[in-house]
Nucleic acid binder design. Structure first.
Lengths: 124, 124
DNA sequence: AAAAATAGATTACAGGTGTAGTCTTGAATT
DNA sequence: AATTCAAGACTACACCTGTAATCTATTTTT
């Protein structure tokens, strides 16, 4: 699995919003929440390319970036990894931890029920 | 939140198995899965102390370590953090990702149902 | 055409991390 | 008593990360 740092992921996440995109578009998207200098974001883009998380095509002097993987695939792998490390690969203890500390809303519960429902339908 | 590296967490995790414990006991516990040098583990113990994740009492020339927090509390915070970063704080999309990629077993589903059940009982 | 802006490439640099090795000191062994 | 062992302290060192600044080669702008 490609290992991305937090900052790298956030840049990639901005690209996932809509791609392909140029560096300036990505910088623009990040300008709201992050106080990152333009140079910082460009460094992160280079590192993402180096790690194989992005590719680009040249358009004159600019690069047009595209992610090499889908967000859902990446987050799934990260999730598996996380759950393996902290909960020996079982997902219920994670959810249970949330439940016990009052972190679950009725909406979360409804959504979880739906996930279970869909899963069961799929088994038939 | 105290930030622990992967290796640091694994050492702390070995302590959580049973504590208080000495360095040699922890090294013993880790000797199965990890190929860590004894010195490596001791370095990690020092770093954990420095970060405030452990304390110790002296027993002659040895230290007897105790975690400063409970595993469940630590993993809950890590989980919140993780879910915030990757799923905007919502837990269902994580579970849903697992479901879609056939990562859920019937046992997982049963456990999740129980968590939901317990949550609902608790609401009444 | 000269100057200024801009794209990416390269360099920087401190703090974290994995992974030990060496140093110091007191305890155990011969 | 002298030597060896072992505990923790301190040092090491390369790679990763966050966070840019500088360099180089165009494009724009004046």
């Amino acid at each position: 699995m490609i290992e991305l740092s937090k900052a790298e992921f956030e840049v990639l996440d901005a690209l996932w919003i809509n791609y392909p995109a140029t560096a300036s578009q990505i910088i623009e998207r990040l300008s709201g929440d992050k106080q990152w200098h333009e140079k910082t974001i460009k460094t992160l883009l280079s590192r993402l390319v180096k790690k194989g998380a992005l590719t680009f095509e040249k358009d004159g002097r600019q690069y047009i970036y595209t992610p090499c993987m889908e967000r859902a695939d990446y987050t799934l792998k990260e999730s598996q990894n996380f759950i393996e490390r902290f909960f020996s690969g079982r997902i219920a203890p994670l959810v249970s931890g949330f439940a016990k500390s009052e972190q679950l809303s009725q909406q979360d519960i409804n959504e979880l029920k739906k996930v279970i429902d869909d899963w069961e339908k799929n088994q038939k």
